[in-house]
């Protein structure tokens, strides 16, 4: 792909992303939002491919387009389909957003230009990775060699994060049927259920 072509693809995809984000903000039908979220992820996966990040694009498509959409649909099935309140304007939110965005725009003026082959980030550590991937590790996919070896420890952390999420969801939602008898009661009471805080209960 020529550079101009990529530029055009970039602009088109980013514009579509912005539109779908605005639509997500305004729509009150949460199913539509879920569908748009999936579309958003697939669009960004497309953009990622255009930006040469094939591994990331793959993951984003699988996670954003797949898993998180399924999760959201599952959540909606268990909760509600519509947002009850109409979208309203929030000044504090706008101010926070303007401040944050302003800081980023301010930063862009000193950022290396887009696509600059002389960007500092390319000069420092990366050449070693490319050479090392070829010679020391012998894995053609440089992303894999960094992910699994150079920064393998990060990936260990990443697995721990996923594990945490699994434990967390099990803790919060797991085994509902068995728990119903003792948890359902407390769940509907206004907190400090006297039954659950009897001193005798813990005397053992």
């Amino acid at each position: 792909m020529g550079a101009e072509m990529i530029t055009i693809v970039n602009i088109v995809l980013l514009t579509m992303l912005c539109f779908s984000a605005v639509a997500i903000m305004l729509l009150r039908h949460l199913f539509a939002v879920a569908a748009l979220t999936g579309a958003f992820s697939l669009l960004s996966a497309g953009l990622l491919v255009a930006l040469d990040a094939v591994d990331v694009a793959f993951t984003e498509a699988a996670v954003g387009g797949g898993i998180s959409t399924v999760l959201m649909l599952g959540t909606l099935a268990l909760t509600q389909r519509r947002e009850h309140r109409p979208p309203r304007f929030s000044l504090p939110a706008l101010l926070v957003v303007i401040a944050t965005g302003g800081a980023l725009i301010y930063a862009t003026s000193d950022m290396p230009a887009y696509g600059d082959p002389n960007a500092p980030a390319l000069q420092h550590v990366v050449p070693v990775y490319i050479e090392g991937s070829r010679n020391d590790i012998g894995v053609p996919n440089i992303v894999t060699s960094i992910l699994a070896s150079y920064r393998g420890y990060d990936t260990l952390g990443e697995v721990a994060v996923i594990f945490t999420a699994g434990i967390g969801v099990m803790f919060l939602l797991g085994r509902r049927r068995e728990d119903e008898d003792d948890e359902g009661m407390v769940r509907h009471g206004p907190g400090n259920d006297p039954e659950s805080s009897e001193p005798e209960e813990t005397a053992s």
Binding site: V161, A165, G168, F171, L172, V186, R187, P190, N192, S197
Partner: peptide
């Protein structure tokens, strides 16, 4: 970032574990 997220995610779960006492 990675490790603080491990701690944060588990902290969310641990905080939510208080729901047996109070749904808040």
């Amino acid at each position: 970032f990675v490790f603080l997220e491990i701690s944060s995610l588990s902290a969310y779960v641990l905080v939510a574990a208080g729901a047996r006492q109070d749904r808040r």
